[in-house]
Write a protein that binds this DNA or RNA. Structure first.
Lengths: 376, 376
DNA sequence: TTTGTTCGTATGGTCTACTAACAAACGTGA
DNA sequence: TCACGTTTGTTAGTAGACCATACGAACAAA
């Protein structure tokens, strides 16, 4: 996974042959990861490298226990039967952690395909600051005991603003400010750790496991409203790592409710799950529909400008299905259609995530795969 | 210049040592281009490559006439005096062409620093289709005769949707549909040609010559309203190469004028130069201010969502100064501030371009520099 | 003159991926 | 059955890219 952040514009780092080598190693892994078992000759054809080079690369990956020979091809055809290879899918496991819920931190042990092998969670008990960091540590320790293979790394999706080095610059709900979560966990557990914003992590999950487009936006609705942007297959971080912070953008030109931030008509006042649930409580179905349609319309208003500017082709919603599915989703689609140029965006699809509640956990695992093996 | 487009997500191309080499050659050129004369030892320190390697790279660049020795350092210090190098700034010239104006195509011969050495233009005479392509050819031929050094390449900024290979997918004003402008001009002139959307080209110009940020949006206001986006130093093209097409996004929730596209309240109805000029004609100064402030406010409404989602740090306006400078610009700034979260965007600056009318021509030149030499 | 510094280059070595050639293992058809 | 072509994976040798080391040249300062 490559990120787009506000870093140096111009090429600044030298590039050595060994960098090319590690790129090509990832290329071999990616071929096996996404397309299943292949022979060395297959990989050579798929990547454009020669069979000799592929043999050499594969030998290195086998020595690192990342690839295994799984038998001979049984195709009936002339020529020597090929030796089939695959990623050593049981050799390593990954820990994925989701810190985005208010009440409890959740985590899981994942295999290399992103399947959940074991879960754990820990109540937050309103902890903040260092106490909350300790909760993360406990959760990871607990998960570590549930692993049944060497650990490839630990991925963490955190709320708030997270920089490129995994420092949580600001997460008000957890009372975190410049918490070097990635470095702290690396020191504590001695394994690769990668920390990123929860909405960005969810976006990555949808891309890796949900067959999302290369130009996609994911809106995550919970206590707040956040978004992640995948542009040309790259995750956008923003000039201050605050991309996707759309919760406090004012939508429309006709007022709205007062927000905790002091403004009127922020996106969160229309869409945050607790607010929507409160509004809907006790209402008859018909009136509920009206409120949900209005919320979807507002989301569409905010998205229209973004969809137009970025020419994204897919908008994915993540959050409570009882709020988002159906009316709200349809109203959003309609609102965007009415407000943008059809010829550019007729291919725009709006849909719910297919990954449900585990989206952040699985995305966190995907981050580790990307960072450590270069596959997605 | 790297682009972000809706292409393959996963690494798909092998990387050979020679790719690293060409990267490092660009690195050496970039060091000289942006920081002026350096010795080989200076370049080695700046790039992290060894003096031996830099000597080798420089020898290749000198053989290609891209770099020259310009004398000895006269620093008073111990040690052998260094041999100063510079990009051979007079050895090549570039042709930049701007097709975005309605009445005439404009172009210029540029040196490697982007300075305009000679200009030419040709009236469009309402030509469309192949006749308009012929006008482009005439203009380039005329400019070619004005060059006084070998041509590095030809850059063209075209209105409409332009894909990664320089095919103008759609430019209604010129009656172009799937016009392979880049391939046609390459065949005609036998020199490297690069074609891109005018707003994107202007964005590149501002980045190269105007000291713009790595996360920046440029809004180009003329007969229509278009935008270019620079994210993490990369130009965004969009899933269908239609990024920045914000002219027909509806802003606000309170109606607006009827647009040619059939919708009400599109950004163009508020901001397109001809419409604004028409509204302002004959009005006293005070009323003009109100209309310009309203236009700026509307631009701010559309930008707020984008600024929030992308966390961009700079918004640059390009277009008629008598409309944009002052009131409109200030109203835009204010509108965005009122509609976004200050803590994420307090570093947002809104300003006019410093490049004036020649922004597309110079950006087109910058594209050629990026594509051919890897410098910006 | 001596000493230490800095520059640019020559030399040899390592790493990467390539081409060419080959043995092994398999169908096919005479 | 056996020669033949095909495909796989390996070995051997080559070209390119960069590095570490070492060296002469050219200078300032003592």
């Amino acid at each position: 996974m490559e990120f787009i952040a506000g870093r140096a514009l111009r090429p600044t780092a030298k590039r050595l042959p060994e960098h090319g080598r590690s790129h090509n190693l990832s290329l071999v892994l990616q071929t096996l990861y996404s397309e299943g078992t292949h022979s060395r000759a297959d990989i050579a054809r798929a990547t454009g490298l020669t069979r000799v080079t592929v043999s050499d690369l594969v030998a290195e990956l086998i020595a690192d226990f990342l690839v295994v020979e799984v038998g001979m091809s049984e195709d009936v055809r002339p020529g020597k039967p090929s030796t089939l290879l695959d990623i050593n899918r049981t050799a390593f496991q990954i820990i994925g952690v989701d810190l985005s819920a208010f009440e409890r931190f959740r985590g899981a042990v994942l295999d290399l395909d992103g399947n959940i092998l074991a879960v754990a969670d820990i109540p937050l008990d309103s902890c903040t600051g260092a106490a909350a960091v300790a909760k993360v540590e406990s959760l990871i320790s607990e998960l570590l005991e549930k692993t049944t293979a060497p650990l490839l790394g630990i991925g963490i999706g955190s709320p708030g603003i997270v920089d490129f080095e995994g420092v949580v610059l600001s997460a008000p709900n957890l009372g975190w400010e410049r918490v070097e979560l990635q470095a702290l966990m690396l020191e504590r557990f001695g394994k690769p750790v990668v920390v990123a914003n929860d909405a960005n992590v969810a976006t990555l999950a949808e891309h890796s496991f949900g067959a999302a487009d290369a130009d996609m936006m994911l809106v995550k609705i919970g206590h707040g409203v956040g978004a992640g942007l995948l542009l040309g297959g790259h995750l956008l971080l923003g000039s201050r790592f605050a991309s996707g912070e759309i919760g406090h953008v004012v939508v429309g030109t006709d007022g709205g409710e007062l927000c905790v931030c002091g403004k009127y008509g922020c996106l969160e006042t229309w869409l945050a799950a607790p607010r929507l649930d409160a509004k809907l409580a006790g209402l008859p179905a018909a009136e509920r529909e009206i409120i949900l349609a209005e919320a979807g319309d507002r989301l569409g208003i905010a998205m229209a400008a973004i969809v137009g500017a970025l020419n994204i082709s897919e908008l994915i919603l993540s959050g409570p299905p009882h709020l988002l599915e159906g009316t709200l989703e349809a109203a959003t689609t309609n609102s965007i259609r009415l407000r943008t140029m059809a010829e550019f965006h007729d291919n725009l699809t709006v849909r719910m995530t297919t990954l449900g509640e585990d989206i952040v956990i699985r995305g966190a695992g995907s981050m580790v795969l990307s960072r450590e093996l270069g596959v997605s």
